[in-house]
Write a protein that binds this DNA or RNA. Structure first.
Lengths: 331, 331
DNA sequence: TTGAAAGCGCTAACAC
DNA sequence: GTGTTAGCGCTTTCAA
């Protein structure tokens, strides 16, 4: 910046003002300075700016690494969400610092802010870390979490209406005549628990009884899902439909069923969750509950910006819709 | 830091030394300072450090957004690569700044460094930007690109042996008796072009002629792949095997084939590329060319670190292997 | 409208 | 082994 100032024959403060588009600046000088800066390929140094301003215009996006459900982070759903967040941040002129943080050191998420690397944190995947997250938020760190709204939460959540999604999915299966709907998903995790609640609710509303043995709380990684479906097939209790709490799980389940000679949807109908891109292009194409990804990114970022500005941000529950495809469409 | 110094009754420089693990430090004082810092929840401010040190200990990971092949960025392959990079960076104490940059403003990749936001850039997806990339690298920006090694490149590439991969895939199909192998992938893109060269080579080595109409240069997004496969099925020329230049494309192709009543592998054998997680769990499971993702992340980061330290980094070509699964296993 | 100068938090050369 | 101090690049208050 000193160089630019010298070349332009002005003081650095003038350069600073010109480049930041300050109101107190002669249009003529400003144009000259901008030109010189471009010629010199000069760009404002972020560290100096950040140090002086006390903010980094960077948001930390944290993906907690859970040893149990680890596989899940390779889910295209996460990439879609990450993409949505990236777009929303770019619009606002913010950079995105992505870290995978092991759950045992989740406090590092807060450190991103205390170190000044980020002005706030978006955390993708609430898992079972409710208490940890509360601690971070209580520390004053702007924090928005993708997940389910929970009692006594001190952090802001953005998520979809999981109970509604679960109910839509299950209701759809029941209305098509299914009477033994299996549920696949770890009910320990808040989002999946809510989806399961919707599953129960759909039965209740139709005055149908639920066989508890059809609820299969399993980590939604391919290995586990395959094993679980195989176990279900060789087990005593039958099922005529399957609601998997993620599309990836649903796809794995379908493959496993087909491999065992079980027809989808003729013998077993399947509904997934997320509506990831490939869902429309599998065979059979997958009926699922859509979570609106671009809106999700926008909402997460908007909520975080509010917090960064010192305001409160209310939890956001985004709408979900049922997308009907071939996996629940009987000949 | 001043607070910590005051509480410890020492000078800030002592605190700095203690916290950075400098060799000139009394073990006793250091322990006391570390303790006080922890109690105060103090962490070294990154902006100050970065400003003073002239480096950010951050690496920019850039995903170019190509309007044509855009869909490709949702490929699980990218997430896997991103994960590998993240792990390698974390090991070295570096942060990862992720940006999606539109191809028209690829110069922003270089700005990440000139602004001091990052010490170097890893670019995922060479696409058709060879010249752009050369410009950035010539500017002195440490730059490593995931992609194919090309003539006259000024930047370092890390990638797999695409020609070998293409040859392995095609050779496998030919050796199983296929005589009309279709190729799916945009041969304008360096990596796919090399895979296609391998495809041609496999034929040549077996003294088999290639029907050029079987090469289908198409963007590997589901919509396009589906349309292309449908066109191939209704077209004049037949095919008894398919080599798709990505797993996602291969999966879409299989779905389209099955939907049309074509059996896989009995009527048409299919080989993909990448070996993404789900490849093993589809029905039929997918034969494919594995690209080693953890090694890829490590190599990319290692090459970039060399450049950051001012050294030259040689291009890296990682090995690829053929993984045989059910999509090429005939009853 | 512009210039001068202080100070954001940190590290390292130098002095003790 | 520790203290003092300068200065990294920037913005902004105050003075002109």
């Amino acid at each position: 910046m000193a160089d630019v100032a010298r070349m332009a024959g002005v003081n650095v403060s003038t350069v600073s003002r010109a480049l930041s588009g300050s109101s107190l600046a002669n249009e003529e000088t400003r144009a000259r300075i901008v030109e010189i800066a471009a010629a010199l390929k000069y760009t404002v140094n972020a560290a100096g700016q950040s140090l002086r301003l006390g903010q980094s215009r960077t948001v930390g996006v944290v993906i907690p690494l859970d040893p149990v459900s680890q596989g899940h982070v390779s889910d295209p759903f996460f990439l879609a969400l990450l993409g949505g967040i990236a777009d929303a941040l770019t619009e606002r002129g913010y950079d995105m610092l992505v870290s995978r943080i092991h759950v045992d050191e989740l406090e590092k998420a807060g450190q991103l802010v205390s170190k000044g690397r980020a002005d706030g944190v978006i955390l993708i995947g609430q898992w079972r870390h409710h208490e940890h997250l509360n601690q971070i938020a209580v520390g004053g760190t702007p924090l928005v979490v993708w997940g389910a709204q929970l009692p006594h939460q001190r952090y802001t959540t953005v998520g979809t209406d999981n109970a509604l999604g679960g109910e839509l999915a299950t209701g759809h299966l029941l209305d098509l005549g299914a009477r033994r709907v299996a549920f696949l998903g770890d009910t320990e995790l808040p989002e999946f628990r809510q989806r399961h609640a919707g599953y129960l609710n759909a039965h209740a509303k139709r005055a149908l009884l639920v066989d508890p043995s059809l609820t299969r709380p399993v980590a939604l990684i391919p290995e586990m899902v395959q094993r679980e479906v195989e176990a279900m097939l060789s087990g005593a209790s039958t099922f005529d439909a399957l609601f998997a709490a993620s599309d990836v799980a649903a796809m794995t389940a379908i493959s496993t069923l087909l491999k065992a000679g079980v027809r989808v949807p003729d013998d077993v109908m399947v509904v997934g969750y997320d509506d990831i891109g490939p869902a429309a292009y599998t065979h059979p194409s997958l009926s699922t509950i859509r979570q609106p990804m671009p809106e999700a990114g926008q909402s997460l970022v908007a909520a975080l910006m509010l917090q960064i500005e010192g305001a409160q941000a209310a939890p956001v529950v985004l709408p979900t819709t049922l997308v009907i495809r071939d996996s629940t469409r009987r000949g």
